[in-house]
Amino acid sequence: MKSKKLSILTNGIIKENPVLRLVLGTCPTLAVTTAAANGIGMGIAATIVLVCSNAAISLLRNFIPDKVRIPAFITVIAGFVSVVQMLVKAFAPAIDESLGIFLPLIVVNCIILARAEMFASKNPVLPSILDGLGMGIGFTATLTLMGAIRELLGAGTIFGMTVTAEFIDPMIIFLLPPGGFFVFGILVAASNALARRQGKPVVEHLGCANCPSRSACHNAVLDGEEKPVECAAKATEEPKQEKVEEIKETTQEEASEEAQEKIVEEAPQEVAEENEETSETVEETVVEETDEKVGGSNE
């Protein structure tokens, strides 16, 4: 029991690192990481909101009607963001200044809504808090790392202390937007390389699989692999059928956590139908298998 709780906590730090593995919350990741200290400030603020909102939503999970759950989650999250915003303004005005508009924008940070939707609304309070804490620590650590890299290359300092600025001219481009995209790309490549070495699936591209709003948009595939117009038409003309599908999928998702094997049998068909829509577990196992095969043939 204790080890299970520990694994919920560490899950968010390494295995499902929200930034590098789930690729959520990219806006603040890119925007505030011009210095390591900003990364820590943003990370801690988001962690507080994440833990509080996970706890509150987990407590309310039986009272929130399914249809209005997204607006309800957003309201809860917005409440905690306002609290954190006021606290930061009062006690750490320097951080408030450097984070600027990204502090209130924690409301729309995908990580928080995604954890509310995927974890807190289905689990008891304590695991939800641990999950929020783990995800928050993972977020903070990644942001700090990225901030440190960009600060070192762009200004020659780390946490404001001079490191290489005296003998290497700082490359200011790393503090500007292109540098943010570039460093993030390299970090994702590095985390992919580590994952590949351990035989885990790599992050191919952003898709609907991790998006918190995907149930709201009728699971439409937005990157153009399927025709979105069809989805929209289906949603308007056959609402009943669509609802059944939605229920089916949620039950599948729940089932996947308990009985992986059953779903794996269905997996090939499902993967063929909608590559990105398959539940995380299925994707993981399937890609693991293919990875092994590829590795074997290479050898």
């Binding site: 292109p178 995209f181 570039f182 790309g185 992919n192 992050v203």
Partner: peptide, 14 residues
């Protein structure tokens, strides 16, 4: 996958 997409975004931003 994603890394090259981000690096392409860096060049567009540049």
């Amino acid at each position: 996958g994603l890394p090259i997409t981000l690096i392409a975004a860096a060049l567009v931003a540049l």
